[in-house]
Write a protein that binds this DNA or RNA. Sequence first.
DNA 1: GTTGATGAGAGCCATGGGCTTGTCAGATCC
DNA 2: GGATCTGACAAGCCCATGGCTCTCATCAAC
Lengths: 224, 224
Amino acid sequence: MTENTAKRNVISKPRARFIRETADVRRQALIEATARCLAEKGVAGTSVRAICARAGVSSGLLTHYFEGVDALILATYEDVGARVSAALEQAVEEAGDDPRDQLRACLQANFRAPILDPDLLATWTAFWSLVRTDPHIAAIHAEVYGGTRAQLETLLRTIVPEMPQDRARLAAISLTALVDGLWLEICLDPTTFSAEEAQAMVERAMMLALGQWRGEWVDQSDKP
Amino acid sequence: MTENTAKRNVISKPRARFIRETADVRRQALIEATARCLAEKGVAGTSVRAICARAGVSSGLLTHYFEGVDALILATYEDVGARVSAALEQAVEEAGDDPRDQLRACLQANFRAPILDPDLLATWTAFWSLVRTDPHIAAIHAEVYGGTRAQLETLLRTIVPEMPQDRARLAAISLTALVDGLWLEICLDPTTFSAEEAQAMVERAMMLALGQWRGEWVDQSDKP
DNA sequence: GTTGATGAGAGCCATGGGCTTGTCAGATCC
DNA sequence: GGATCTGACAAGCCCATGGCTCTCATCAAC
């Protein structure tokens, strides 16, 4: 009825239509919007309004589903971390039964989609910059990295059972660091080296860590 | 004279005393204040007011000496980068004449003061998060990292002249990545491994890259 | 003392985060 | 299948903070 609008003394535009979604859908939408904001505009550009505009909801909704923007960023970190872990796990499963293949797959998957993604790095650096100031982020970081290293360590000792515990620990740390460093640099500046070169480098490092590197840097060497 | 204050209709507190400084001193003070802010409170906490409060000057001075806060952050990146480069260079000089010692010193210096510093990491992550959005930061990043890699490459080929060009290039990239990854992780979470272990890891990686690794991971091996 | 640049500090406008208020979608009940 | 009720949701307000500008005080050199 026209009376309905006439009741208001000011002609205001009708409220935007919306569809009710379940809490999970909304939360996920907000998390994905946060990741996209972090990737595109960095931490500084990740505001409540920017996130909600991306998610296609009003800004009041963020507080409705999360404690605040900090809690949302935390949830985003957990989500992105879980997604990366899942991608690595999937790579391991697809590698077959040979633990050596599994290790190689686990390392090299970092240089393929969906992990090799500059947007993901932007999200990650945002989190790194929060680790020092936010204990919650620090706890999740320790958990994620600890898990990755533990997995590597297990694989290493499966492949070479006689490898000493401490040696396996340091090898896992080294491999993780190498992967991180390469991943960081290739995402920051993809012109320096290619993903294939990165995969070759981690494979070489892996074989060296296993003590099973047969070739030398002069592959077509005429030396005996 | 008392007349001087009486002239004003409102009793206002006297303007703070200050000393004139040269442009260089002021710029440097602002740059150092910016680095401290980045380290302590992250990018989000690095505002004009926070920086100027740290530097002990009023907020108007920032615009007086820099185009804006972005330009100041850029200058801070250049400054911090130059300081790190200088520390590495000094380590090389103090290492003597043997290029192998120089290489080792250059790599291991990353895990000693002043480079091994969580505050420095906080500054660095702030910059990483800006590389993707700010072309100026990206240019400086490419310059700094390119320079480091070129230096490593030169040292590698000095030590082992017969090493192929491409092999040296990849070795330099790998060593840089390993150092970066270890440095990142030890600054984020110092409980995972020690600085001495980091130094041992980079030394091992260096020797492996040179093809001069004699020992095996079972040092007290009973194998022939 | 004069002068010119350095510097303090208030103020302006834009944006941020959180909160409140009111509304509408969709489940529930009869 | 309509009335009712619940709570998800939009819109906008409030205050704090951000970057930056403008005005004028102050210092130091001549």
